[in-house]
Each structure stands twice: as structure tokens, then as C-alpha cells.
Simulated assay, not measured.
Amino acid sequence: MDMKATRQAARHRRRRLGLMMGTPLALIAAGVLSYLVMAFPSARKADAGNVAATPAAGTPMIVQPGPGSLTAAAGPTTAAAQPSAPRTRRTASTVAPLAGRIRPKVTYRGVATAYDAGNGGGACLYGPSGDLMIAAMNHTDYEASKACGAYVRVHAANGASITVRITNECPLPCAPGQLDLSKQAFAKLANPSLGRIPITWRLLSPRMSRTISIRYKTGSSRWWCGIQVIGHRNPVARLEVRSSNGWRRLPRTPYNYFISADGSGCGGAIRITDIYGERLTIKGIALRPNVAQPTRVQFARH
């Protein structure tokens, strides 16, 4: 009996000890559970705020163009891939890498004035012209004859417009953006009595059926020559001649001739390049001064 009583007493002691130890553990577990329940809504709110501020990959995000950009295009992209400049805006330099001050897809602002064009001659030395829808480019944008032969579309504030070809230079104080139109061209935009009107204009690559012509300057020979390009659709950026050492680029004068001072390449093959980078090779042009000799080529339309 004593042994049995002793065993029962031991079992009761172990049971009380388990209860004593289990109670604090249960209290601790209950406290942790209460903390998690209270914290969970706050965590959900914080997560929701993060999602709103940072779009997940694949969510459309509109990129706004910066001020002063040539184009207003800004296409949708994703937060995962940042757009590069060539993808969000197309600059004139990528369209016409050899362009000078006058670039395609750019609108220029200025004023239009009028002058007596006479027979259509001018600083570009194209000579007389039966088409008097022509203009003199201001000294800055004329850029030492780079503007010669360019076609521009001119718009007046009243909605009238006219296409003119650049055949002359308007000297200072003609301001950048200014066009000095022939009286005939000015009359297509406004009453000639106004004398001066605000305009906008853009470079044009017009439709045309005629081909390019080449002319050697008066006095040209196999020891010295000047070469001019006439009737080109797009502005000419370069002229090269074939020499014993390959293609040689000739310098351009303010009077719109490319000069070979030592006669290299005079009377040989000629290669011309427009502002868009298109190259045309012309052969068989005789060294005949002051004669416009037609070719079979023309620059592509843009």
C-alpha cells in the first residue's frame, strides 16, 4: 500500500508540474497570436501603398516628352524597361545626317519680305529662270550656299501657302528664319502692300519629273574647274570627283560651285550626296564650261 501510494503521489506531482509549465507557454503563444492579428491589417495597407507607387512589370506607363523636343511623340512603355531617347523621339539628325541648319521635319518661324527677282538669277548662280516662285534665304540659314536649290513650303498666318526654291541670299540684317520672297511669290501669300508678314516654313522634298544637271563654271579646264549641281530634289551636301587616289571631296564656295583648285578630277566621274546620305555617281559629263548637261539621275523623295 505504501508503494502504491508513493507511485500515485509521484504521478500527481508530474501532472502539477506539467500544468505549471504549460500555462506560461500558452500565455506566450496567445500574446504572439494577438500581435500578428493586430499587425496584419497595417501590413496590408503598407503593401497596398507600395503597389500604387511602383507599377509592377508589364504595367503601361506614359512617358511625357521634355520641353523643346522636336517631336511630341511619347509612346507607352513598361516600368520594367526604361525607354531610350531614340525610341521616344526622332531627331532630325537621324533623318538627315548631313543636313546643315535647315533640317527636315522642323518648322521655322520668321518673317517674309519681298524683292524684285528680275529674271530669277541670284547668289546661287543658277542663272535666269522662267519660274519666279523663288526666294532668297537669310544670310545665317543660307549657310555659305548650303541652302541653294532647297525647296521650302511657306505658310502665312491667313492660311495661304506657297512652295518656293532657294536661289538667292538675303544679306544681313535679314534675321534667321526670314525669307525674302520674289514679289510674285509674296503676292500668293498676302497683299504686296503689306511688305512684311509673319510666316512659318519647312523643308520640302517635292515631286518632280526632271533629272539633275551638271554645269562646269566658266573658265574651267583640266587644270582648274568649278562644278555646280542643278535641279536637285533635295539639298546637296557633298560633291566628290574621281582622282588617281580615289574619290576626293571638293570644297563648296558661297556662290554655289564646288572647286577643284588643281584640276584633279575635272572632266571625270562625279559623285554627289544629298543631306539624307543618298549618293549618285555620274559619268560621261564633258568638260564644257557654262553648259548645263542633263543626267539620268535624281535623288529619292522624302
Rank of each mutant, 00 (worst) to 15 (best):
D47L: 12
A39G: 07
A73F: 11
A123F: 12
A292V: 03
K4W: 11
A150L: 06
D116M: 02
S42K: 15
R14T: 12
C148Q: 03
I285N: 02
I166N: 03
G149Y: 06
T6R: 00
S34Y: 09
T113M: 03
G130H: 02
L204K: 08
V51C: 05
L194N: 13
A135Y: 05
A26N: 06
A112C: 04
Q64V: 06
N234K: 00
R11K: 11
G149S: 07
R13A: 15
G121A: 15
S260T: 02
G130T: 08
M21T: 15
L25Y: 08
R90Y: 02
A73D: 09
K183Y: 06
I259Y: 00
C225N: 07
W224H: 11
A48E: 08
P294Y: 00
G18N: 10
L287D: 13
L181F: 13
A5D: 11
F186L: 05
Q184R: 08
A123E: 13
N138G: 06
S129Y: 08
A46E: 11
Y126T: 14
V106L: 12
A237Q: 07
P55T: 10
S220G: 00
M1S: 08
G231H: 07
P235A: 14
R301T: 02
M133R: 04
P198L: 13
P65I: 15
A81D: 07
A136Q: 09
T54G: 01
S69I: 10
L17G: 03
A10L: 15
A157C: 00
G177N: 08
G22T: 14
A114I: 00
P251E: 00
S93W: 11
R301F: 03
I230S: 03
A30I: 12
A29P: 07
P76R: 10
A187N: 01
L179P: 01
R252F: 01
C148W: 06
I28Q: 04
A39H: 13
R165M: 07
M133F: 01
G130L: 07
I272H: 14
G122S: 11
V37A: 15
T113S: 02
V241D: 13
Q82F: 14
R196K: 15
L27W: 09
P173W: 01
P97F: 04
R44G: 09
S243F: 05
G277F: 03
T167Y: 02
G58N: 05
V32F: 09
G226V: 09
C170H: 00
N191Y: 10
Y216V: 03
I212T: 06
A96N: 08
S93Y: 12
R288K: 14
R109W: 02
L27Q: 03
R196G: 01
L179R: 08
L203N: 05
G177T: 05
V236I: 15
A157E: 10
Y35W: 11
I162A: 09
M38Y: 12
L250V: 04
S129Q: 09
P251V: 02
A117D: 11
L125G: 00
A175H: 10
W223C: 03
A46W: 08
T211F: 14
I28L: 13
I270C: 09
L36C: 08
S260N: 04
S193Y: 10
L194F: 14
M133W: 05
C124R: 04
C124S: 13
I230G: 01
D131G: 01
W201Q: 10
S129C: 06
I270K: 13
P24I: 05
R238L: 12
G130D: 06
A56E: 14
Y142M: 04
P67Y: 00
